[in-house]
Design a protein around this nucleic acid. Sequence first.
DNA 1: ACGACTTGCAACACTGGTGATGCAAGTCTG
DNA 2: CAGACTTGCATCACCAGTGTTGCAAGTCGT
Lengths: 189, 189
Amino acid sequence: MSGTTRALRSDAERTVRMILEAAERVLSRNPAASMEQIAEAAGVARTTVHRRFASREALVEAMARWATQNFAEAVDAASPESAPPLVALYQVTANVLRVKIDWGFTMRVMDADPEAGRVHADISERCDRLLIRARDAGVLRADADLDWTKRVFYALLHEAAAYRDEDPDVLATRVVDTLLRGAGTGRGL
Amino acid sequence: MSGTTRALRSDAERTVRMILEAAERVLSRNPAASMEQIAEAAGVARTTVHRRFASREALVEAMARWATQNFAEAVDAASPESAPPLVALYQVTANVLRVKIDWGFTMRVMDADPEAGRVHADISERCDRLLIRARDAGVLRADADLDWTKRVFYALLHEAAAYRDEDPDVLATRVVDTLLRGAGTGRGL
DNA sequence: ACGACTTGCAACACTGGTGATGCAAGTCTG
DNA sequence: CAGACTTGCATCACCAGTGTTGCAAGTCGT
């Protein structure tokens, strides 16, 4: 592989990343946006997008794989199977938020891609195990419905991601706090 | 208004309702579904749909208004400004869930219609006031971020609506319980 | 049976988005 | 500078979905 090739390839890869990021930006506002709009947002011609991605489907697939990788790395980095449940919960939340803030649209439609869907399902199972550990450690109530709890956890992550400009660590604190303590005082229930 | 006219009009209105319900069913699974698919699900020809609704936009608008009315009635019936906060919270939850389970798609895209958007904004404000009353009554913590709390409340409603087959009252209990107490034990936080 | 009305069907024109291609101009490396 | 490569632009064929219309067949009340 010659130096020339490497340089050009790096240019091409930069363009690809620009397109992927533009697609995320545009599609998160309007999931039905045209390739034209995506190309415009990326600062390239529509033909260029088609040269990089054979079809709209291929583009979304590429987005899914890219986001999936970041997602998986975010989870891995939190050591969810070995760290103390509460710590892991917090770390997973903060790390995933960092990804989700930038890849919200993609992460919503990821499951369509079989490869990404598989990883997603895998992560879902790791989340299950983390919640079980949390329950066994007395962090979650013994009678907590873990399916529901997971749903709530996902939903809170989703809502927190709307606060794009806040510090992910602050958001993570709020998410975990809400998940575990709710917003009530405990009186009168 | 003759008897004939009334009978025919009632037939027509039944068809309209069939179409609206079919549209909700189809679009909730696939927001990009074609008029053809909607017509098929309603058991009518595509032309019939177009005779009732001049355009796709008009159809969605009609859905929005219909769902909005149900939504507003669901909130009203809970007396959110007069009932004790905790009771109102529970009633609002149960009533809204009943509507949201059947009109999930429509309620997600309602804001597009100006009329429906206005009602939606209005209900949002009533929710704000209810949360303030709840906080003043000691149901919510004094330091609760009400904007965040409202978001969480909405998100929990959304998640609960996924359990289409459960009893709305049971779901409401779960939602309010999660909103106020969370899923944790309170230990170690 | 008549009249008012609705429906399904077939056909049509139109639009917007998709994907492909050839070509001239540009950039970067060696 | 020469060569490899990429980009923008103009253009094309194509397709799916939309919205319209005319007509024959059907229903329902009187």
